[in-house]
C-alpha cells in the first residue's frame, strides 16, 4: 500500500482528533502492559525501542502497518524472555490453555483459565 493510500485509509477511518486508538482490545492490553512494565523498571525506553525496531525490521512486515501490534507483542515477548521472566514456550502453553478455556466456556459467561479441561 502506498503512503497516499494509507493516509486516505486513515482519513476514511475518521482518524481525526477523536479517532479510536485501538482496533481490538488485545492491542490496548498489550500497549498498557508495556507501559506498566516500564513503570516497574523491567526495561527502559531505549531497550523497548530496540526490541520493537528488531521486530518491525523482520522480513514479511506489512507495508500498511496493519500488523503493528503483532510486532508489539513479539517485542514484548522477546524482552520478557531476555529478562528471564518467562519463555516463549510457557507463553505458547498458556495461550493454548486460554483458547481451550474459552472454547469450553458457555456463551455469556466469563472465560476463566480453570475452564480449560486439560488444565490441572
Amino acid at each position: 500500500m502506498s503512503l497516499r493510500d494509507l493516509i486516505a485509509h486513515s482519513q476514511g477511518l475518521g482518524e481525526g482528533i477523536d479517532a479510536p486508538v485501538f482496533a481490538e482490545p488485545w492491542q490496548a492490553e498489550a500497549f498498557a502492559m508495556v507501559l506498566a512494565l516500564h513503570n516497574q523498571g523491567l526495561f527502559d525506553w531505549d531497550e523497548w525501542a530496540q526490541a520493537l525496531s528488531t521486530e518491525l525490521k523482520r522480513p514479511g512486515a506489512l507495508d500498511d502497518g496493519s500488523d503493528y501490534y503483532h510486532h508489539w507483542v513479539a517485542a514484548l515477548e522477546s524482552l520478557v524472555a531476555a529478562k528471564k521472566v518467562t519463555s516463549s514456550a510457557d507463553i505458547d502453553d498458556l495461550a493454548a490453555s486460554w483458547q481451550r478455556a474459552a472454547h469450553a466456556t458457555p456463551h455469556g459467561q466469563p472465560i476463566r483459565l480453570e475452564n480449560d479441561p486439560e488444565r490441572f
Binding site: W26, E29, A30, T86, I91, W98, H107
Partner: peptide
C-alpha cells in the same frame, strides 16, 4: 466463546506477568 490467537497470547502474557 473463542479467543483468537493474538488475544490468547496477550492474555497468557498478562496472566504470567
Amino acid at each position: 466463546n473463542e479467543l483468537d490467537p493474538m488475544a490468547a497470547r496477550v492474555r497468557a502474557l498478562e496472566t504470567i506477568l
